[in-house]
Design a protein around this nucleic acid. Structure first.
Lengths: 129, 129
DNA sequence: ATAAACCGTGGACATAGGTCAACGGTCAAA
DNA sequence: TTTGACCGTTGACCTATGTCCACGGTTTAT
């Protein structure tokens, strides 16, 4: 599919598709036509952009997205390294979930408490174990 | 405390403290000295910077941090509005946790599956219900 | 009293992640 | 065949979040 189609399928702009391509987040972008130099983006890249959007939404940088996708896919990486890397990403994810839970329960308590404000206890709860 | 102290207490740079101040993320910054114009940052702001760092780490923009803190604190907001706002932040947080959980279990399955790559199923799992 | 460490201000610079406009080429429908 | 929608490239521009530097003033330790 051409850039317009992948852009509308994924909900990002054409410029964003080009940016991702330049940053190495997409794969197998070809120019299969004789009479023009239009590019072709495969379904694979639709999935990639979907993953990127999902990961971005929860705070991953594009570089992190790239490293995760690469680790999932990269056949040149040693299997052991790939597994270790993915395991470390799992740990990162767990850690983020813990942080979010703290924020959530903190907000909930604040609400339950009729929004009484106490910034010290806030941070204690947010950072706290 | 002066800027150097709050910076080292919170682990951000002096420039960052000044930036946050300019963006309205800090409160009650005064200039209480007669012979210089050094500023004073209270303990309150140590907590604020702590909260900001925690929220930033999980992907919130400074503007979001500000709106959350403001809703927690702002006495000019109607109580009902504050509660509604905080409730909506709780929902956002839950949603992010859901996404992270999907990513986590997805990574885990990938690992358990000896890193067999299938991008279609990836996105299905990430976006999927 | 002098050097080192601190402070505020202003402005330049950096990186990430995009967006937009202009140019010229191509394709498709009327 | 012409018109409108698409394409690629380039380069400027934008916001967010910082960092760094130079200047001149202040405080502190020696």
């Amino acid at each position: 599919m051409k850039i317009g189609e992948i852009a509308s399928k994924t909900g990002v702009s054409r410029d964003t598709v080009r940016l991702y391509e330049k940053l190495g987040l997409l794969v197998n972008v070809t120019r299969p036509y004789e009479y023009n130099n239009y590019k072709e983006y495969g379904q694979e890249n639709v999935y990639r952009i979907g993953m990127i959007k999902e990961m971005q939404r929860i705070g991953l940088k594009l570089k992190e997205c790239k490293s995760v996708i690469d680790a999932l896919v990269n056949d040149e990486m040693q299997m052991d390294d790939r597994k270790a890397f993915i395991q470390s990403k799992i740990e990162d994810t767990k850690e983020k979930i813990r942080s979010l839970r703290k924020i959530q329960s903190f907000l909930q308590e604040h609400l339950d408490n009729d929004c009484a404000y106490n910034s010290e206890s806030m941070v204690a709860k947010l950072k706290g174990n």
